[in-house]
């Protein structure tokens, strides 16, 4: 799988839905027959995948909340996550 275009505007696939899991106290990504458990930063990232924001803008948003000094690490994590979600067919980009 190729890397992501930073100007691309990712959006969760129609069949995937973010859901708060009260019992596990975490977000999960639900889709047919399965679920992915998300850590808090992954959940915040996917909340921003609305088809309007670019990958760059998503990284900017997270860096403003989690620390500009961590921007490079955040960018790596965001791209890694989005590539994996895309590979499962759950992200339109």
């Amino acid at each position: 799988m190729s890397a992501l275009d930073p100007a691309a505007k990712p959006r969760l696939a129609n069949r995937a839905r973010l859901q708060w899991d009260e019992q596990g106290q975490r977000h999960v990504l639900l889709f047919p027959e399965a679920a992915l458990v998300l850590n808090p930063t992954a959940a915040e990232t996917l909340k921003l995948c609305d088809g309007n924001r670019t990958v760059d803008a998503i990284v900017d948003d997270l860096a403003s909340r989690f620390g500009q000094e961590n921007r490079a690490t955040i960018a790596d994590h965001v791209i890694d996550l989005l590539v994996r979600i895309r590979e499962r067919g759950l992200l339109e980009i």
Binding site: Q19, D21, Q23, V28
Partner: peptide
């Protein structure tokens, strides 16, 4: 309806 609400409260996701 009770079954579905109770199931979700038990942790069901699907």
């Amino acid at each position: 309806s009770d079954v579905f609400r109770d199931g979700a409260a038990l942790g069901a996701l699907q």
